[in-house]
Nucleic acid binder design. Structure first.
Lengths: 222, 222
DNA sequence: CTGTCAAGCGAGCGCTCGCTCGGGAGGTCA
DNA sequence: TGACCTCCCGAGCGAGCGCTCGCTTGACAG
């Protein structure tokens, strides 16, 4: 747009910008993915132009293409990292406990922390999958399936141990849990009255013990 | 907006189109919103061009603009209808019962049915809000808030009646429930082994009674 | 028979998109 | 010194975007 008027025609432009610290600062390469994720999440992938991205980074549009081959590469890498992160976090947290119920609780805390502490990345992965090419989408989906299998296994362990109900299929239990957790990303506020740990505790209670008081209506007192 | 398209007294217009051998059939005005919603949901709002939309409808791109003033009008109308629908459905279903727990169960069934039976429209509303202009987004968000208040009230009734736990804030209980229900839209398959009613029953069980087996010795009581 | 109007058309305007090109500045190292 | 590399730049290409234009067609009311 009107950015031509902001930057004087100066050959030492790059140097000067680095000294003065015009944009956010730090090498472009390190800020690239997080900046892209931020814009993609706020505006959507297709609605974010490479020009806006480079402007936010404080470089020319052409410079972007020194670091990346295509715009889509950014989205792909964001999705890949998001899933790698959350899987690593979940595995680590779950492995810290032996009790089946505690393992589920730890998963809930780990998953929620992972996605809410890097909302841009994870939200982009959750909402912009369809903008990837078929081949790459397949790749990401298979990573997502792997993650889903991990949770399914976790819940199945619980079923076998008798602490997770078996009258609902593991699949529905898994997808329901992911629904509950993932989409807090849409409304959770870092600065709100609720912190991540408290929310995770509440969600663990709702998911495991239910929103109703106990014992269940229809069984016993009323 | 596209309110004008209440279907003219079906003339030989459809005939003419049928003779020429053009696509799906029926007056453009009646297919406009559902076709748009379908494309928006599959590909995203920004990624769907007006040319692709008109091509799907079997008309020239210019004709589209006889029915609609701007592309964004379509998105706005889709969001408005989605929220009007789901609110009407929830109100109707809930009012059929007096028992607080049964009211919540009916809400779950009604909400899930409403969104899964018109996935295109509701999914578009859920995922493409950010593409609306500020003023219109505000309008849709306030409709959404109204709906959320309705649910919050429903759950609060339950809390007062003593059948919904009070150690978790009504807000979190509401948002958790909406998370659980809404995002089934991403993975639910019409043709799958699970039908909407069965899924709603499972989700009602998970939400109200929890995924763990009962009773939980010692805690969770209130 | 005529005037009005919804519905649709082909062409194309002004603009932005993703991406490319040839080249320059500065650092490293033989 | 000079060959090479990384990082960045200004300029701009072809394509596609949302949207508008002047015009035609067929149904129908007076």
């Amino acid at each position: 747009m009107g950015e031509r008027g902001l930057t004087p025609p100066d050959s030492k432009l790059a140097n000067r910008r680095r000294q003065v610290g015009n944009p956010p600062d730090g090498p472009v390469a390190t800020r690239l993915l997080s900046t892209a994720a931020h814009l993609f999440w706020r505006q959507g992938y297709t609605a974010t132009s490479t020009r806006q991205l480079s402007e936010t980074l404080g470089v020319q549009n052409a410079t972007l293409y020194h670091h990346v081959k295509k715009k889509e590469d950014l989205l792909f890498e964001i999705c890949r990292r998001a899933l790698t992160n959350v899987l690593a976090r979940a595995r680590a947290d779950v492995s810290e406990a032996d009790d089946p119920r505690e393992r589920v609780e730890r998963f809930i805390h780990g998953h929620l922390s992972a996605i809410l502490e890097d909302k841009d990345q994870h939200a982009t992965m959750l909402t912009e999958l369809r903008s990837l090419s078929v081949a790459r989408r397949r790749q990401v989906v298979s990573m997502r399936d792997e993650y889903q299998d991990f949770i399914e296994q976790l819940l199945q362990e619980g079923q076998l141990a008798g602490i997770i109900r078996s009258d609902i299929s593991t699949k529905v239990l898994t997808l329901g849990l992911l629904d509950l957790l993932n989409w807090a990303i849409f409304w959770f506020e870092e600065r709100g009255e609720l912190d991540v740990r408290a929310l995770a505790t509440d969600f663990a209670r709702i998911y495991l013990d239910g929103a109703s008081t106990h014992p269940r209506a229809g069984e016993g007192e009323r």
